[in-house]
Measured scan of single mutants.
Amino acid sequence: MAAGGDHGSPDSYRSPLASRYASPEMCFVFSDRYKFRTWRQLWLWLAEAEQTLGLPITDEQIQEMKSNLENIDFKMAAEEEKRLRHDVMAHVHTFGHCCPKAAGIIHLGATSCYVGDNTDLIILRNALDLLLPKLARVISRLADFAKERASLPTLGFTHFQPAQLTTVGKRCCLWIQDLCMDLQNLKRVRDDLRFRGVKGTTGTQASFLQLFEGDDHKVEQLDKMVTEKAGFKRAFIITGQTYTRKVDIEVLSVLASLGASVHKICTDIRLLANLKEMEEPFEKQQIGSSAMPYKRNPMRSERCCSLARHLMTLVMDPLQTASVQWFERTLDDSANRRICLAEAFLTADTILNTLQNISEGLVVYPKVIERRIRQELPFMATENIIMAMVKAGGSRQDCHEKIRVLSQQAASVVKQEGGDNDLIERIQVDAYFSPIHSQLDHLLDPSSFTGRASQQVQRFLEEEVYPLLKPYESVMKVKAELCL
């Protein structure tokens, strides 16, 4: 049975990233139509530049190519590739079939990587351009969430054990800070992308030097003109047959890092959902379990974690691919890159769409948070109580021993009897502590235990987050809708 299948058929496997999760716009960027249309555009740009620099290419040939950029006979191309065992030459023939007058000058002087690699770089750039505003929107939604809850005390956790208090907004800023680093890295790697350009079979530009009869300047002009037509500021000066596969490492490393950030955020949300302090959106008709109707599973956060793990592992592909590119190139890269580049971007696209949807509907339960604080705060307040007693004339050592005994009794009630923490009640009825009984409410005010959390939130948002989001103001209103 021949390899390949009808990918629109229910009898043929289709990647869930495309069929179930990723956005239509990201799927289109990695589609065959987008790819092969870009090949034709690159052939047109090459012909236009070659004509401008004096090669015998007519206006009629150029116009014929322009008129057929979208006229792609995919069936013919597939048949040609089956016959020739070469995808680029299959599309040269297919393009030439609908451009008979231009057929002889299509791909003039070029090698397969002229269309293959340059198209990949265009796709990487455009895919990054799709991700950047999506990530900015996630940051914006979380920034709104953090600002609104900047002063809401909550129990902090280290080692997932109760620690000092923080605020809900401050905790959210930990998430935002990681995503801001990801946004900066995505922008950097996007701006650092260079075009492969017009380089020939081993990167020496020998074929173009021959076409222009040894004119170095025209060869350099050709490279520059096509690079500018493709919208790049610069091209690699040095290439082998391909652009260095280190570029793929750079791009997928940034995406993998984004995956790590999203995994951490969504894990926190899942843990908070278990504590009943916070939940992701839950639709009115949504079913959490087929057997347990009360369940409210954090399905979206779980999906993000599941896909983020996949995204983090994909960076190993370009690392290994770059390491086995012998001399000017081997074909070890080809099949692998067809999979890992598309999957990385479709996965990143999915987790950003999902995280935006989550961040637009996060639900906080202040009463649950308050109750958990009441359970733990008495123990945390013991040092403040000791200091207040010393100020009232008591002995630190005597007070410490009193607190120690009462704390152990209260802990026994919590752990052995399943009761509430009654340390404060014990202190309130103990005559030894009568000098500070009137101060206990103040000493137990949760806001006095959150330090500068709310001020940190305000400063972080104003100095770091809002300036970073400013270039994306025009796209901030787009909502994230999930079908599944």
Rank of each mutant, 00 (worst) to 15 (best):
Q177W: 15
A206I: 06
T58W: 05
R337I: 00
K233Y: 04
E25C: 06
T239W: 01
L341K: 15
K187F: 10
I265E: 09
V138W: 14
K75V: 07
T202F: 02
S290W: 02
K82D: 02
K170I: 01
F208V: 10
M65V: 07
L193R: 04
G393K: 08
S207R: 04
R14Y: 13
G240L: 00
R309T: 09
E328M: 03
D59E: 03
D32Q: 11
F157C: 09
G259Q: 00
W175G: 06
V413R: 14
C113P: 12
W326Y: 14
L55Y: 00
R459G: 14
R404P: 06
I351S: 07
S151F: 04
L209S: 12
F433G: 04
A335R: 01
C173A: 13
T267L: 05
Y294H: 02
L55R: 07
L346A: 10
A78K: 05
D398R: 11
V478Y: 09
E283G: 05
E220Q: 05
T354K: 09
I106T: 05
C173P: 02
R125G: 09
S434M: 12
A322K: 04
S323N: 00
G5S: 13
R303C: 13
N71C: 05
E250R: 10
V29S: 10
L17G: 04
A103T: 12
I386N: 12
P318D: 01
R194C: 12
Q325P: 01
R371M: 01
L272K: 04
C305D: 05
A90L: 01
A256I: 00
S31F: 02
D333Q: 00
S253K: 08
W326M: 15
R404T: 06
V368P: 02
L255C: 14
D430L: 03
Q416T: 08
L131V: 05
L193A: 09
L121Y: 07
V363I: 13
R234T: 11
A230I: 15
E48Y: 05
M89Y: 04
E148A: 12
M278C: 11
S257E: 10
R40F: 03
N297L: 01
T38K: 13
Q408H: 13
A235P: 06
N353H: 07
G8K: 11
D268S: 13
T38S: 09
P133M: 06
D215K: 14
D445C: 13
L142I: 10
L130S: 13
N185D: 01
A206L: 09
L121G: 09
L155Y: 04
L174V: 14
P446Y: 03
T267G: 10
S447A: 11
W43P: 03
Y432E: 13
M225I: 03
K101Q: 06
I358S: 08
K170G: 05
V262E: 07
L108S: 11
A77W: 04
L155E: 01
R234Q: 03
V254H: 10
V405K: 06
T94Y: 15
E383H: 02
T167G: 01
R296E: 13
M387F: 08
M380T: 01
H263T: 11
T154S: 07
G4E: 13
S261Y: 02
N274F: 10
R374L: 07
R404I: 00
V88R: 00
L165A: 05
L258D: 01
I339C: 07
R245H: 00
G200M: 01
L346P: 05
A388F: 05
N126Y: 14
E25F: 11
G5L: 10
C305P: 02
C340V: 14
